[in-house]
Design a protein around this nucleic acid. Structure first.
Lengths: 179, 179
DNA sequence: CGATTCCTTGAGCAACCTCAAAAGCGGTGG
DNA sequence: CCACCGCTTTTGAGGTTGCTCAAGGAATCG
């Protein structure tokens, strides 16, 4: 799937998915109907497994970058206690990551997000400025300024990303750092 | 348990618990050893169920108010897929609540927390200023000023809380509101 | 090539932070 | 009972970060 595509909608029913590649945004929908950022899912995370029991998705999900999703569980009926518990533990840790993305100075929030999304080699395709702003609870103008600053200081460098059409990627310096 | 007591420590092993009453703080411990706020657990939430599978708690947990905890699951071996999945769904929603506590203006963050912690009747025992500050990513001086402002404007009123020794409680007006 | 959307940059302002001092609160021991 | 200690909370004054509003530039898509 490309960026900015809807995967499923809160309240609907359907399968669960594993994010094989890419970044997915989870939004909670208020009674009034407007959506607020709730969480992120990245490679390895499970999406929508609550629907297996409850028959309804909790969040509305949207791709923020090019994404690959695979049905979960791979084998029907294999959603046993152990795999669910592992999924729960991952979700808890991911939630703590997201909370951390909303604390501290603007530049630190953005760098924490960059590190969260970067692959081992330090390559990363960032979401749109407005999505980064929603994630970090900053304004998109602030995100723009911070990224400009990071480029000028050499922490981020624009690079071609192979295999992803029309996506501007970055190479990140100082990857192994303060978590 | 009283306030500011340690329940369990990240990396340790032990039982899982259900929060019957009170507010519990979850902290992630960095490799360097200093702890950062990760999440909250309130009445009904499950604590440390990841240790049932992994043999190690993910977070360090501390009580923020007077708390009652009960072992979970109530019946040994009853931690089946269904109850785990329900616990997972609750944890996801709680995580979204916490993320929301770190967005918007200071007064809105504090009020969102107050509403999250208040009981049906609108009574609430708040955590210490410093803990509220850690939760909302504000400074404790800011929390103090905001609470003073809420008292002066009549949104919060100091009250006696029955059955809790030496705890200053508040009554909250405007409970059923923007979530 | 025009339309739309996203991104960049600037200038002034408001919200929150920092630093500091003093007051309140709870426990301990004379 | 009162004096003292440590810790938390309150309050003030001034500084900084990030927000608001605005305008123009770049990218994308039909």
């Amino acid at each position: 799937m490309g960026p900015a595509e809807r995967i499923f909608v809160a309240g609907g029913d359907g399968l669960a998915w594993r994010v094989a590649h890419g970044v997915v945004r989870l939004d909670r929908i208020s009674p009034a109907g407007h959506s607020t950022f709730a969480s992120l899912a990245i490679a390895g995370d499970i999406l929508g497994c609550e629907a297996l029991l409850l028959g309804a998705y909790t969040f509305t999900t949207t791709t923020l970058t090019h994404c690959e999703l695979t049905p979960w569980p791979e084998v029907k009926g294999a959603a046993d206690g152990e795999s669910l518990l592992k999924s729960l533990a991952t979700a808890q840790r991911r939630a703590a990551d997201i909370v951390a993305l909303r604390g501290g100075q603007a530049i630190d929030r953005v760098m924490r997000l960059v590190r969260l999304l970067a692959d081992r080699a330090g390559k990363v395709v960032l979401p749109a400025r407005q999505d980064i702003a929603d994630i970090t609870d900053l304004r998109f103008e602030t995100i723009s300024r911070v990224i400009t600053q990071l480029e000028r200081s050499g922490v981020l460098a624009a690079v071609r990303i192979e295999g992803v059409r029309a996506a501007r990627g970055y190479a990140v310096r100082y990857l192994p750092d303060t978590q």
